[in-house]
């Protein structure tokens, strides 16, 4: 059984210590290259599938520049069987649709049962590539998967899907199918040392976009359907500041400041006060009453 995992090596901006407002104050030291954490969860889920179904072959595919290889190497060290790097020197200029085209066409002629990818990449937060790929390949997809079971005949997959407010939607789906993985599904493993050393020697298959026989006359960012105009930081939330009023005690003022101002608690919410132990047992009681925790 062949399983495909699409992973993305992202530029993770963890700080804004730069001085140029045009660059959103992002300096050269503010970026690290990491594998999209949700893709890592997707790979981990595949590895767990493989633990149950030993004949599974895991192929990881990444579109990107030279850094993509680091991510693929990591996937190999965690236990993926093969890695394919689709090289794109202009990485970052394709939009979600074009990316999905490239990725879908890289596996169009292959026999696969399942495709996994992260629910979104945490750099652009698009969440579109997965569903687009499924659309192009004309297979079903389920997004935001938090639990997954393959039935014995391997013809159907039972998935739990996260919907709003912690609710879950249970779905059944035929294979082949694509699933985008939501956080919380698992905790990814840390590779073992033999895994790391093995991965260093493994060959990563490299493909060029022009080899993919895309159904397009030309190819490139010019065919993007969407264009990013600009990125900006969120505007700071307005908060009513602490009261200068000296009649309020220091601890109350502190609480007001940390609580975001002198606002009443909303609707039917409860304010729990007291020592840490009291607060915790009260929270536990509320959780049990509302059915979040079993009685």
């Amino acid at each position: 059984m062949k399983v495909i995992v699409f992973v993305k090596q992202i530029k993770y901006v963890y700080a804004q210590t730069g001085i140029d407002p045009k660059q959103n104050f992002i300096g050269p030291d503010d970026i690290v290259h990491i594998m999209n954490p949700l893709d890592e969860l997707a790979l981990e889920e595949t590895l767990r599938v493989k633990e149950k179904h030993r004949d599974t072959e895991i192929v990881v595919i990444s579109l990107g520049d030279g850094f993509a290889e680091d991510g693929l190497r990591k996937c190999l060290s965690m236990g993926a069987d093969r890695a394919i790097h689709i090289y794109d020197a202009d990485y970052g200029k394709l939009d979600a649709w074009m990316t999905a085209m490239v990725l879908a066409y890289s596996i169009r002629n292959q026999e696969f049962k399942l495709i996994f990818c992260g629910r979104r990449a945490i750099d652009d937060n698009g969440g579109l590539v997965g569903p687009y790929i499924a659309e192009i390949l004309r297979i079903p997809h389920v997004s935001r998967v938090v639990k997954l079971e393959i039935d014995g005949g391997r013809s159907k997959v039972l998935v739990h899907r996260a919907v709003e407010r912690g609710n879950r939607e249970v779905m059944e789906c035929t294979v082949p199918a694509l699933f985008t993985i939501e956080k919380g599904i698992n905790i990814p493993r840390y590779p073992t040392l033999p895994g790391i050393l093995r991965a260093q020697k493994q060959v990563i298959q490299r493909m060029e976009i022009r080899d993919l026989e895309l159904p397009l006359k030309s190819f490139g960012p010019a065919l993007n359907l969407t264009e990013t105009i600009s990125l900006s930081n969120p505007k700071p939330k307005k908060r009513s500041g602490g009261l200068a009023d000296a009649t309020v005690s220091a601890s109350d003022r502190l609480r007001l400041m940390m609580g975001g101002g002198d606002t009443e608690t909303k609707g039917d919410s409860t304010l729990v006060e007291g020592s840490t132990d009291n607060v915790l047992s009260e929270i536990e009681r509320v959780f049990r009453e509302s059915g979040i925790l079993p009685e």
């Binding site: 905790i187 990814p188 493993r189 840390y190 590779p191 073992t192 040392l193 033999p194 895994g195």
Partner: peptide, 11 residues
């Protein structure tokens, strides 16, 4: 190094 079993916070 061999089993990769440790507390998740270590990972």
């Amino acid at each position: 190094l061999m089993k990769s079993t440790f507390f998740p916070e270590i990972a």
